[in-house]
Amino acid sequence: MINIALPKGRLGEKVYRLFESSGYEFPGILENSRKLVFVNEALNMRCFWVKPFDVPVYVERGTADIGAAGKDILMERNPDVYELLDLKAGICRMSAASLNGFVDDNEKTLRVATEFPNIAKNYYSGLGRDIDIIELRGSLELAPVLGLSDVIVDIVETGTTLRENNLTVISDIAELSARLIANKSAYKFKNDEINEIIRRLGKNVNKIN
């Protein structure tokens, strides 16, 4: 039995469609219900929805053999798993943004608001910049507008929300997209099954987007 953890939400649905078009179907999985676990006996596979941020935990601890997780979440949690395929779904960027016209003059500690403290810490320590991390749970655009922070480190898709709040990207930190991850031990002992899934998904990743 292969266990698959998918992130609940828009990204997960996109990834599920990729599975479906590659021959891995779980009837009823996209219907609006509270059911979380779906089994396909014929394929000997089980698929479940979990919170996007938790996918790496399920995979690292072996409850799921494989899973799909955004690169942002992988960078933030840094799980000990294999990252085997770029699923090329949900392509966007992790960027640092500030109010239009802001110049970082290095005179003060840079105040950084973010939902991704580890990503922010790693990025700025790579630059050797001293920062003060302010961890928030959303509506990050507000932080520089109200003076809570100098910059934000956040996911940027189209940039519309930034523009509407007079913010602008000052640097790109990473390219993001969904990745297929696998538990290290499961990949040893279910190697043929997992490689077959990767082979089939890999053939379709470019068609889906």
Binding site: G62, D80, S185
Partner: peptide, 9 residues
């Protein structure tokens, strides 16, 4: 070293 059924080395 890995053993089947144990999720880490």
């Amino acid at each position: 070293g890995f053993i089947q059924g144990i999720p880490e080395s």
